[in-house]
Amino acid sequence: MLIRHPDDIAPSDITPRALFDRRREFLRLSAGAALAGVLPAAEAKLGPGRASVLSSTEAPTPLKHVTGYNNYYEFGTDKEDPARTAHALRVRPWTVSIEGLVKQPKTLGIEDILKLAPLEERIYRLRCVEGWSMVIPWLGFPVSSLLKQVEPLGSAKYVEFITAVQPETMPGVRSRVLDWPYVEGLRLDEAMHPLAIIAVGLYGDVLPNQNGAPLRLVVPWKYGFKSGKSIVRIRLTDSEPRTSWMKSAPHEYGFYSNVNPEVDHPRWSQASERRIGEFSKRKTLMFNGYAEQVSQLYTGMDLRKQF
């Protein structure tokens, strides 16, 4: 049965292209005004950000799916939970302390972090360990720009990302589904890779809470859970961090968790994935299609053992 419903938008309501393009100019101007203290900062859009050669040319997943289908267990384990409950997350004031094996430990406010480096638009594939994927236009800057601020010591080998716990705003942390705070980690050379970014926005706008506001990690060649949300602490260490999923099920989730169609999850296959919005499944690509850029990080490693 085909249920027809009238178009939501009349043609006369659609902004003509010329005006639409000028809207960006207006936004840029108003963003400038906001920085000058004329307008409250909250009204300024972050985007659009500089285009990047590292962006995918694939069609981005619609915004409603990017913001309506999330794994953010602090806000509930159903995919629709975060969109419903994450509005409560307090994202200001927000600081990130960067510590451990660094020359200059620092605590940075989010306002400073936003000004740290020019924002770029990075359109990346995101592959979830559960077997679905999206294409998301992130807005952010390389993780390396952030780490350079603190000057990692030569002894630093790993980076641990520790995320927020707000029991009063996060219904999920009352249950012991995972060990809170949610912790993720990368090898330092992985974190310094140009593809690894700190995202502060998506679709040209401020990062929605359910996507990990105000700042999150995005590592596109690894399964989605490696990209920790709402980060509050970054620690440089000489030993491999124990991540929340490794603690939860060590035989199912390894430290690396690189997207790999040949290494199955013990309970399901990773050979294919369903792109959100598509009917057929597609073959999953090695390193989520970023093999050319990242495979040299893993030369000589047995990716079956170090999964």
Binding site: T61, K64, H65, G68, K79, E80, W132, I276, G277, F279
Partner: peptide, 12 residues
Amino acid sequence: VQADTLGANPIE
């Protein structure tokens, strides 16, 4: 399925 009210991943 017809009205697209099953979220981002209707097949699942």
